[in-house]
Computed example of a mutant assay.
Amino acid sequence: MEEFRLDQKLIDAWVSGALDADGEVTLAHQVARVLPFHWTLPNPVAAKLSRITEHLGGEQVLFDWLGQQPGQPQLVARLYRLIVLLDHLSATDAVLVALRELRERTPYPPGLGGYLIPDTNSETLAGLSWQIERLLAEDRVDEAVRLAGSTVEMLQQIAPRAAEIDPDLGSLRGQLEQIRKDIVAASAAG
């Protein structure tokens, strides 16, 4: 069974500003390890994670903080940027239309067989975000990175069509490219 651990002494010292750089790295590694379990954490650990998140000012700032740490925390932060984007795009009609059109030609784009659900609906991209998070939870980080890369590649293919349907998505392709570069860099450094 997975041991969920966020050291209370490290959290207290960090919140008070008394934690040294090595302690902050240790805390970031602990946060990165428990984050994929956020839905199933025991209440005491969930409360500690909430305290950290609230102290920073929210989930996005938590990802920023993790992204500044070396190794696994940085990679986890970069993968979560994609996970959050996938969850957001799941409810975007233009993206779903473009994805359906792509999947009519290529039902399972490269690297996504076994991960994509058969139907293309609001659960399709959310399912991929869940798969990436599940792989992180199972400590299958290399596989999570490969799945993230294949997912970004697929989204880059549909981004022009999605932007054609909804001009507000004009920056999606650039956003995806930045996420891809960030994941590649963090994976290479990790």
Results as ranks from 00 to 15, higher is better:
Ala137Met: 01
Leu85Val: 08
Leu176Phe: 10
Arg81Trp: 09
Leu86Val: 12
Ala137Glu: 01
Val97Gln: 05
Thr151Val: 05
Gly174Glu: 06
Leu147Gly: 12
Ala159Glu: 09
Ser150Ala: 15
Arg146Val: 03
His55Ile: 00
Thr151Glu: 02
Val145Ser: 06
Arg51Ile: 00
Ala46Gly: 04
Ser171Trp: 05
Trp14Lys: 02
Ser187Trp: 15
Leu128Thr: 04
Leu62Asp: 09
Leu82Glu: 07
His55Val: 00
Pro70Ser: 13
Asp12Asn: 09
Pro118Tyr: 03
Leu49Ile: 00
Ser50Phe: 00
Arg173Val: 04
Glu54Ser: 11
Gly127Phe: 05
Asp166Phe: 07
Asn121Thr: 01
Gly58Ala: 01
Gly149Thr: 04
Ala28Pro: 13
Asp182Lys: 15
Gln72Ser: 13
Glu24Ala: 14
Gly71Gln: 14
Gly57His: 04
Glu133Ser: 12
His29Gln: 14
Glu2His: 11
Ser150Met: 08
Arg81Pro: 01
Leu41Ser: 09
Pro73Asp: 12
Asp87Ile: 05
Glu143Phe: 08
Glu164Cys: 09
Gly127Asn: 07
Ala188Glu: 15
Asp119Asn: 03
Leu172Arg: 09
Ala18Glu: 14
Pro160Cys: 09
Ala189Gly: 12
Pro109Gln: 10
Leu86His: 11
Leu86Gly: 10
Thr151Asp: 09
Trp14Met: 03
Leu79Glu: 07
Arg134Gly: 01
Trp14Cys: 03
Leu19Gln: 08
Val34Lys: 15
Asp139Thr: 01
Gln30Cys: 09
Leu135Asp: 07
Gln156Phe: 08
Leu89Thr: 13
Asn43Arg: 14
Thr40Met: 06
Gln178Ser: 14
Glu24Gln: 13
Ala144Thr: 10
Arg78Val: 00
Val61Gln: 12
Gly58Val: 02
Val95Asp: 12
Val76Lys: 11
Ala188Trp: 15
Gln8Cys: 01
Gln72Ile: 07
Glu54Ala: 10
Phe4Asn: 04
Pro73Arg: 11
Thr26Tyr: 13
Ala91Met: 11
Arg105Ile: 03
Val184Met: 15
Val97His: 05
Gln30Val: 12
Ala32Pro: 11
Ala126Val: 00
Ile183Cys: 14
Gly170Phe: 02
Lys181Thr: 12
Met1Asp: 08
Met154Ala: 15
Gln178Thr: 14
Leu35His: 15
Met1Gln: 09
